[in-house]
Amino acid sequence: MSLRIVVCVKYVPDATGDRHFAEDLTVDRDDVDGLLSELDEYAVEQALQIADEADDAEITVLTVGPEDAKDALRKALSMGADKAVHVEDDDLHGTDALGTSLVLAKAVEKTGYDLVICGMASTDGTMGVLPALLAERLGVPQVTLLSEVSVEDGVVKGRRDGDTASEQLEASLPAVVSVTDQSGEARYPSFKGIMAAKKKPVTSWDLEDLEIEADEVGLEGAWTAVDGATERPARTAGTIVKDEGEGGKQLAAFLAERKFV
């Protein structure tokens, strides 16, 4: 039977751009170019490698996001994924992590899955909790933050490099996996891949398709509220000296003055 892989990818504002908040304190997506979160490219890459090893596999990329989020899906399709699902609904504006996990869980279930692969964190929200939230909602094992992953005979195995130890993990499918940027460079889409992606199916679902009520998500339904955002004051210009042979000593004097020495 075919191994059904769903890769969750997020469309995010470019981190090297000048990111801001909109008036309602949600992330401003108008002023900065968006792209497929770089950390989710690693998830797509591992999905492609797992599919290569399997006898028969199908990769669906899934995103919850605005109209432009299709760009992220196209990129993933051009890397080699087979089809895409885009969950899009005006009522999703302002959805927080708990809400997003609810939508992703319903969409993953509707798609049908054996393995869900996520990135380690989104490059805008950087919470790194979605995979755990999703596993909890789906009621399946979480095998997260892997720097190495493989699937064989319905079992997913991987290595998790933690703070205090490196662990080998193992779980039966279905499961939710997340991979780190240590899992291996993501491939660039080939010209052929880019052309092929144009013909691959992208399904759009709204909240009704997923049987989710509008008040369960969005700003109104959010479990958290942002009350204020302030731009960090620019650091006051520091002292910069050119080393003329005494740079180390000058720096030591500065550290001593600040009582670090």
Partner: peptide, 21 residues
């Protein structure tokens, strides 16, 4: 970002800094 910066070769500056500390 810095409060104090040294424009220089770290192979010169860092050992001198360590020695001075």
């Amino acid at each position: 970002l810095v409060d104090y910066g040294v424009v220089g070769d770290l192979f010169e500056v860092v050992p001198q800094l360590t020695e001075e500390i």
